[in-house]
Design a binder for these strands. Structure first.
Lengths: 215, 215
DNA sequence: ATGTCTTTGTGAACGCGTGCACAAAGATGA
DNA sequence: TCATCTTTGTGCACGCGTTCACAAAGACAT
């Protein structure tokens, strides 16, 4: 039986072994003292806890460049996601296959959600279309939304929204780049607060990097 | 002079006003006691600290769906980013305009970096091409890389890499979705693939989210 | 001027997560 | 069976960030 010790895993992941063990203890996945963790069992438990063993049908609304990129993205299938449908408001797109999946018109949105039992929706529309699309998704039964449109969506309680802003990561890089370049010019550090839509993750400080700026 | 109090800002952002004031004090941007913060001055200070007042030329390598989506993304310009060049390995793409910018061939990568003084590169290539492209970018002088390819890049010290995995956000949504769905419906998941007879089939304390999963 | 009122800036307390250290548990060999 | 060794699971303490609470500072009215 192939096993790993918390020490090995911690070294590989660059974290503390005690924390790793404590986290594992949450899962109820018990290792064997004197031996370590059964690799196969551990992988299964973590996969299950993260939802990787389930099949999650998702719809992508807005099949522009970004929507098409998402439809083609290979990483989804291996994480338990299945693109149940592609939806676009442009009638000219209807029927045209993207990533092997025929695009359907927005008119059928509710029907598609219902028939496929979709609870997760991805919005890749222009900013102006995002909120109306969001409202229809929610009304049709979607309870989790991944928003790529540059708008803050408002949703009723019980619905999760995560916003992906492609420029934020760039901004973080630029922030560090600025510090690389100008250590001698300005000796001041700072921070700023940005309105958060709903529980965005932020990490602790790295040296004297402000708390709101992810490391 | 239009002003805002830390209390107003904190309420709007959903954070604690004391923390906000403490963060602002890092900037050295002084508010006025009894009045609040001068909005215009505050905006400028934060913009400057975050690097928004600078002009950051970036190159995007790999003009597929995702690269094109990034090139078209409107949020960059307003954050101080300027797409200096689009680069692709496909000779058929060369000269073809995307988002108004003509695509250039990978052969000229070093020249483009050098002539435009680019220090930030975006990689939107297939996984296999990412590391070679990364190496060339670094060799040409790029010190910050935003990686959309599903690969872990290795870079020398002094170079920052941020990896964007489009499926991670979805996975976080699915994780929460799984918890919404209920704790009784997962009996079926255990029977199929589990390496059986491990006794303890129940998951741990059901109340809390494991520390390793972002909120 | 002087007093009152508002809001900042910050020292200090609090709470929480992380890491340490160790007892308990099981493996292994004599 | 007993001793020894390895590694887990976790109580406890420490450190750090967040929050509280208040003195200081400036605006404004009298």
């Amino acid at each position: 039986m192939p096993t790993v010790s918390s020490e090995e895993l911690a070294a590989a992941a660059g974290v503390n072994s005690a924390k790793l063990r404590k986290d594992f203890s949450y899962l109820g996945s018990y290792g064997t003292r004197g031996v370590g963790y059964d690799v196969e069992y551990l992988v299964y438990q973590i996969s299950r806890e993260l939802g990787l063993t389930q099949d999650w049908p998702v719809v992508i609304v807005g099949i522009g460049n970004l929507g098409a990129a998402l439809a083609n993205y290979g990483g989804f299938a291996s994480r338990g996601f299945r693109v149940a449908a592609l939806i676009d408001a442009d009638p000219a797109m209807a029927g045209k296959p993207v990533a092997g999946i025929p695009v359907q018109h927005t008119d059928d949105l509710e029907k598609i959600i219902d028939e496929n039992g979709v609870s997760i929706g991805v919005i890749a529309t222009p900013a102006g279309a995002a909120q109306p699309v969001c409202d229809r998704l929610v009304a049709a039964g979607v309870t989790s939304i991944l928003n790529f449109a540059p708008t803050v969506l408002s949703v009723p309680d019980g619905v999760d929204v995560r916003k992906v802003d492609l420029s934020i990561e760039l901004q973080i890089l630029a922030f560090h780049e600025q510090r690389k370049a100008g250590e001698e010019a300005e000796a001041q550090a700072g921070a700023a607060a940005a309105p958060a839509e709903r529980g965005n993750d932020d990490k602790g400080p790295d040296g004297d990097v402000p708390a709101v700026m992810p490391a």
